[in-house]
Design a protein around this nucleic acid. Sequence first.
DNA 1: AATGAATGAGCCTTCATTCAT
DNA 2: CATGAATGAAGGCTCATTCAT
Lengths: 203, 203, 203, 203
Amino acid sequence: MNDKFFDLKKEKQDKMINGAMQVFALKGYKLASTDDMVKVAGVSKGLWFHYFVNKAGLYTFVADYCVKYLNMELAVNLSSSKTDYFDILYTIEETKAGISKIYPYAPLMIQAMEDENDEEIVEVTRSKIEPYLEKVNEALSAFDEGKLSKHVKRSMLDMTVGYTIKGIREKAYKNGEFDGEKYLSEIKEYFEMMKNTVYVDGE
Amino acid sequence: MNDKFFDLKKEKQDKMINGAMQVFALKGYKLASTDDMVKVAGVSKGLWFHYFVNKAGLYTFVADYCVKYLNMELAVNLSSSKTDYFDILYTIEETKAGISKIYPYAPLMIQAMEDENDEEIVEVTRSKIEPYLEKVNEALSAFDEGKLSKHVKRSMLDMTVGYTIKGIREKAYKNGEFDGEKYLSEIKEYFEMMKNTVYVDGE
Amino acid sequence: MNDKFFDLKKEKQDKMINGAMQVFALKGYKLASTDDMVKVAGVSKGLWFHYFVNKAGLYTFVADYCVKYLNMELAVNLSSSKTDYFDILYTIEETKAGISKIYPYAPLMIQAMEDENDEEIVEVTRSKIEPYLEKVNEALSAFDEGKLSKHVKRSMLDMTVGYTIKGIREKAYKNGEFDGEKYLSEIKEYFEMMKNTVYVDGE
Amino acid sequence: MNDKFFDLKKEKQDKMINGAMQVFALKGYKLASTDDMVKVAGVSKGLWFHYFVNKAGLYTFVADYCVKYLNMELAVNLSSSKTDYFDILYTIEETKAGISKIYPYAPLMIQAMEDENDEEIVEVTRSKIEPYLEKVNEALSAFDEGKLSKHVKRSMLDMTVGYTIKGIREKAYKNGEFDGEKYLSEIKEYFEMMKNTVYVDGE
DNA sequence: AATGAATGAGCCTTCATTCAT
DNA sequence: CATGAATGAAGGCTCATTCAT
């Protein structure tokens, strides 16, 4: 990319980042068109290429930006004092919701990166998302699995909870604007239910 | 579509249906290319258009075929005697796994239809999937929610279980061939865990 | 490239080859546009890519075709009995003029290849033209330099004659159709003059 | 163009003229890019357009400047006392070599103008080069063709010598900087040879 | 005056669709 | 019925040109 991008007014930077992020997050790499971004961000076609060389470069930049921003916020929010499984995951989603105030499609972009499989950019995408996944695992390592009911297998819990969050998130983006508050309250509701079912004695 | 399609040898019909289904299920409507189908099914490009007019027509046909076939099988397998939540859902997945012996990508196609959002075909896709969703709801109506622990809300359970199945399914299609047996055994494992956690007294 | 190109009717093959050759020879690689070829050959844009993958592939094919064809003809026409410098060079130009009956821009294409310097294809172009240059040198090795006047240096003669031919050729392509007969008669005229001036005793 | 260009410091004027001339001479009108000129001259993109309106205007200016400068120098160097064919042509090339000390690409630019055939500017280019061609012819009119061997036709000599010079010049610009001394000595060598072959009694 | 960010028309390339065989 | 050659609209990308600073 062209580092002069960062010399632009923060406002314009964010308009471009948000435009690209929205289209990439909603459509995936291949179906995301520069024309869409032009419409969404109100920035001419040529400019994207002026700063990011090509579509892959733009995707890489947005992906990187998204994860770096999230990880920075997580570094602040994920104090090691948190040891409860659901508390940790909630904090993570809370952080994402926080970011969505500036970058509304960031939470969806993170997820889109995990789902992305276009051969032109899979490799780089995977490498970009890695640090985030590590951070999550690291945070969850503070959780004492002994708290889980004997019927509950940790790996299966991860999957169930992970896909449930994904489902809630997708739903939250379905119709119109993403509402962080509503999203979090729904997450919380699910987590309450789950705490009552998977912990050894209902908490 | 052109009804003469059904005059073809069943074998060729299935080769075409499977080819289209595979590409649509794996890539989604827009990214599914006719060239891919030609390669996968070994049937010339012109023939698809001869029978199905255009890509949208082909998608509609395959979507319709898939759901109709599934619903027919469900009509047989979902006897009203089944009343347990997880038994019912398991029977549904078992039915899909059965279908996968003839149409390996049918289970993924059903899911792809639920996720599809290409404006050219969303509407019709939604209408095609509807009968299946109704059948599922109908079957689940035999379940007595009183069996659920007081902490568990039915709508939330639906979502959690639904997305968990989706996750397991996606994983099952990730690497190579779909293995129905393995898929079902994994589903069963999750369902066992869930039964132990969401029912009023662990069954 | 796609070898099925050779299954096309010879007529169409030649229409495409001639179209591409004309545009490449007249404009050079970079400025040659597919739209021009579409107009000149009356063949749709997509078809060029169907057979030749991309512009570089098309150029490479035409370049290769041109040189191979020329070298085949030269192998016939350049009998080793020819030992006179100008006879040899005349035979070469005569051969090119012969080819121009089927591929009118082949003589200009050969020259364009020598002048080409677009970085995307210089290397491959150079390697394609090589066998022709070798064949010319080989043929000229039969010439006895002792026939040259003491004032004439062979390397300088090569250059003078070479650039003169190039000049005559360029002129021949300037206005309208290339006329092989006229071209050859002009070459001959120059060669007569030169024989009278560079040989030891005016022949 | 904007006449205020001449209010700039001579140094900057020449930096811009040389930058444009270099890129135009090496690549031709169409392939000459403003970005290249920016890099070569270290002058911002906007400024070129500020003074020359558009690319065609810039080309026209440089072409005009080049020829006018050359003709002024020729007016000095081509004293009517010179009557030998090769002496006259040598003086012309010597003059070009002299100019190359200030405008290194001027000799190549003159030639590029003769070769230029981009429809957007052919006409104007042709009209700009005209005065130079006339001056050359005028100077050569002092030559007594009676000095030529009976085998040598004047028009053919012109062409042969002209294209030979062009070839030497192209070679001189091939690798790195243009070296006027080397260029002239090579020209001289060829001219010596030619004098010995085309004059009635070897001088 | 001078800069370089910003624009959009144009070219290469892909792919659904048509059609001659 | 079957084939795949042929087409052209649409998307990625380049570059002359404009314009706010």
